[in-house]
Design a protein around this nucleic acid. Structure first.
Length: 767
DNA sequence: CAGTGAGCGAGCTTCCGCTTGACTT
């Protein structure tokens, strides 16, 4: 029996803290929330002052029973959940459910997992802050009201099983609006002029590139400019050198870790979190769901020592950062290595790489700023008012850049900018060796990648570190958004080159628009977004969360009761819901006419059909038209007539084979070949519109062989022919008596005996 | 699993934030 029971939220945290406290303390975890609003129905008694109906979810029963038992035996119970709204609520639910008496229950908080912080917390217990708890109840109730009243409107007015919510609907809106910007974007070309200069009399050492201060929209203007340059004279009008400092980025929060892991390691948001979770569980890093950039004093000191040891004292700059994120609750430290002196770890490749990234970012944050010289040279023309401008940066002292530099989404360096520039006196005459006017196209805005969406949500104060990854999963699962790759397209660009007094022309191709894993809306995502915007503009407003957060804060400060707050919100909101149900919705039946098929003279339309977005050829006068499903990535709003007509080319018949036609089409699993009753997917590199008969036959043969190989068991046993070890997508498994059984961890299929397999089967059957 | 392009209408779907395993063939 233990004298003291300490309850925290996370089991890994419990393990660490237990080491810091004496033998008389037992530390257990609640695994997050232990109670929630009733799963069925609204879970709120709206007309009884919004009384929440709480219940213990099925999967929490065991934890609660265990904690109950231990709490009864303990002399003192310490509620040590996080010091934020949710943590305070967890403490209150625990106190309520475990029937903890006020006099031997203590609420303690700490923001970092260090021995000093924990002992300090134990010495300064307080009581549960009911205002903070009520702010959480308000948050929970509001989210349920919004989600469970909006979603049914969508079922009725748009399509069943859809969903809407305070966070997810704004996330979808961001993606839809970006797509509309891209659709509306008109690309324009202009000529950008770059010249190669050197100082008169010193061609070797003084070579540099400079860009003209303006570009030319019309080709003839660019040509005229170059012609004028043939007998132009140039001189330096300004040469300025300015020292600048570049500061290290703060240590990681959840959102910045997701961004950097995406950019530098190519990891998805969910992947980053799962790898970080493993590092956390091994005690290698601090908690990975945090909005704080704060470092403990201990970590700052360790960084100082480590930096001094590795690079010398002049590189060390011990300091802390201020959190800027909207609505940050700062219950934890920034994400950092638990032990700064540990530079690398054992583990899988992603674990090692993510740890290294965290280590570098943390240590660099405690290093001095880099010092750079930024040089700007301006070149005047004798007969025109434009100028050529060159700028460059030279690192004078590397500082933190010795270890780490933050990446950006737009890693594009402008031509004519860069490294070292020569020192020049004002008035120096310079000579242009070549001047090039190159065609440049304006770029459409790019679609969000996962981390960029998280960044935007965080800026708006929407969502929490624990929900960024799940929110993305939700909007993808609902079919509102897809992760898409796009092939780049090619276009011709013209270079006009003035060299040796003559202008010549050179054509080049450039590719543009290539995208990997970008978030794009689906048609249903756009329809739902437009519907919500038309009926519930105030709820999916970007500032809605920020506004209600202010109200939650007032509840937390005791200025207003949560009932008042929720009532003030609910009355007008519920009116909107009633109004929406009462109005006819014609948005989902939208049909877009794309034009007329030149071959048949029939109209081509795009709309959402029973099985998703489709194009229709003809079918105007009550007759049945020809239908074709739209491809992934195509939208009703932006598909062109040409793209639509292409879709009718499938399914194609490649001719007979063994008396059966060989067909190629596109189904819900992508392009496929059908021969009789058997289906084969095309390879990624094959195009269903152009694939040849020879290639199709080759694919059929290949897939036949693969299928034979896959159905072949890995192992058979002489004792019993029905006991098989097969290879599946989750690794090897046992197939026996029509059922499948997974192998215990670490067992090797080649070393299992028949008796082993029998045991595994028997054990699984007992369960 | 690879197709479709209406109108029988049961009973169901859904939120956001805290936390981890259990489990797919």
């Amino acid at each position: 029996m233990q004298e003291n029971l300490v309850i925290v939220e996370s089991p890994a945290k419990a393990k660490t803290i237990e080491k810091f406290l004496g033998k008389s303390y037992m530390v257990k975890s609640s695994f997050g929330h232990i109670r929630d609003l009733a799963k069925k129905g609204l879970g709120i008694e709206v007309d009884k002052e919004f009384e929440p109906i709480y219940e213990i979810p099925e999967d929490k029963r065991k934890v609660v029973d265990e904690l109950s038992r231990l709490a009864r035996q303990a002399k003192t119970v310490w509620l040590a959940s996080d010091e934020d709204r949710e943590g305070e609520a967890i403490a209150w639910h625990l106190a309520t459910v475990l029937n903890l008496p006020i006099d031997n229950t203590r609420r303690i908080v700490f923001h970092e997992i260090t021995q000093r912080a924990i002992l300090n917390a134990i010495e300064n217990p307080r009581t549960i802050d009911m205002n903070l708890v009520n702010a959480q109840q308000a948050r929970r109730v509001l989210d349920r009201l919004v989600g469970f009243e909006l979603s049914p409107v969508l079922w009725k007015k748009v399509r069943p099983a859809l969903s809407a919510g305070r966070v997810q609907s704004v996330a979808v809106r961001l993606i839809v609006e970006r797509e509309r910007e891209i659709i509306a974007f008109q690309t324009t070309a202009s000529y950008r002029v770059v010249a190669q200069f050197y100082a008169e009399g010193d061609p070797q050492k003084s070579l540099f590139k400079a860009t003209l201060s303006r570009s030319f929209e019309r080709r003839e203007d660019a040509v005229a400019f170059l012609e004028g340059c043939i007998d132009e004279r140039y001189s330096v009008s300004k040469c300025e050198e300015k020292p600048v400092q570049r500061y290290a980025a703060p240590p990681f929060t959840t959102s910045t870790l997701q961004q950097e892991a995406g950019r530098k390691l190519g990891m998805s948001v969910a992947q980053t979190m799962s790898v970080a979770q493993r590092l956390y569980e091994q005690g290698l890093i601090t908690y990975m769901r945090t909005d704080s950039v704060n470092l403990s004093q201990m970590a700052i000191t360790q960084c100082k020592n480590e930096i001094t040891r590795l690079f010398g004292a002049k590189y060390s700059y011990p300091h802390n950062f201020k959190t800027k994120a909207k609505g940050a609750q700062e219950a934890h430290e920034a994400i950092r290595p638990s032990y700064i002196e540990r530079h690398e770890i054992e583990g899988t490749a992603p674990e090692k790489r993510l740890y290294e990234l965290i280590w570098k970012r943390t240590v660099a944050s405690q290093m001095v700023p880099a010092e750079l010289d930024r040089t700007t040279i301006e070149i005047n023309l004798s007969r025109r008012s434009e100028q050529f401008v060159a700028s460059g940066e030279v690192v004078r002292f590397d500082g933190f850049m010795r270890l780490y530099s933050e990446s950006t989404d737009e890693d594009t360096q402008q031509e004519g900018e860069g490294g070292i520039l020569p020192k020049m006196e004002v008035g120096t005459a310079v000579v242009a060796t070549t001047i090039t006017a190159s065609e440049r196209y304006t770029q459409a805005p790019s679609r969000y990648n996962e981390a960029a969406l998280v960044k935007r949500l965080e800026e708006l104060g929407i969502g929490r570190p624990s929900t960024y990854a799940p929110t993305i999963t939700t909007i993808i699962n609902r079919g509102y958004v897809e992760k898409q790759n796009r092939d780049g397209q090619k276009r011709q660009i013209e270079h006009l080159i003035l060299s040796g007094g003559k202008i010549s022309q050179k054509m080049a191709t450039e590719s543009y628009g290539k995208e990997k894993s970008r978030l794009a809306p689906t048609d249903i995502g756009m329809v739902v977004n437009d519907y919500l915007e038309s009926q519930f503009a105030s709820i999916i407003d970007y500032h809605f969360t920020a506004n209600v957060e202010k109200e939650f804060d007032r509840v937390a400060d005791g200025e207003i009761t949560w009932h008042t707050m929720i009532n003030d919100f609910y009355a007008p909101f519920h009116k909107l819901v009633d109004a929406a149900i009462g109005t006819q919705n014609d948005r989902t039946q939208q049909v877009r006419v794309l034009g007329v098929d030149p071959k048949t003279g029939l109209t081509v339309k795009a709309r959402i059909g029973r099985y998703g977005p489709m194009v229709e050829l003809g079918g105007d006068d009550g007759t049945k038209g020809q239908f074709a499903s739209m491809k992934k990535g195509q939208l009703i709003e932006s598909i062109t007539l040409e793209e639509a007509l292409e879709l009718f080319a499938l399914p194609r018949n490649l001719g007979e084979l063994d008396g059966e036609p060989l067909m190629v089409g596109v189904g819900k699993f992508g392009p496929y070949l059908r021969h009789g009753k058997s289906f084969t997917s095309l390879a990624k590199t094959d195009d269903p519109y152009t694939i040849t008969r020879e290639r199709a036959e080759e694919l059929l043969r290949e897939s036949g062989e693969k299928q034979r190989a896959a159905s072949e068991p890995l192992r058979t046993f002489a004792e019993d022919a029905t006991m098989l070890i097969k290879s599946g997508i989750y690794g090897p498994y046992i197939s026996y008596g029509g059922k499948n059984y997974r192998l215990p961890r670490g067992s090797k299929p080649e070393s299992l005996t028949y008796v082993d397999c029998q045991r595994i089967v028997a054990k699984a059957q007992k369960k």
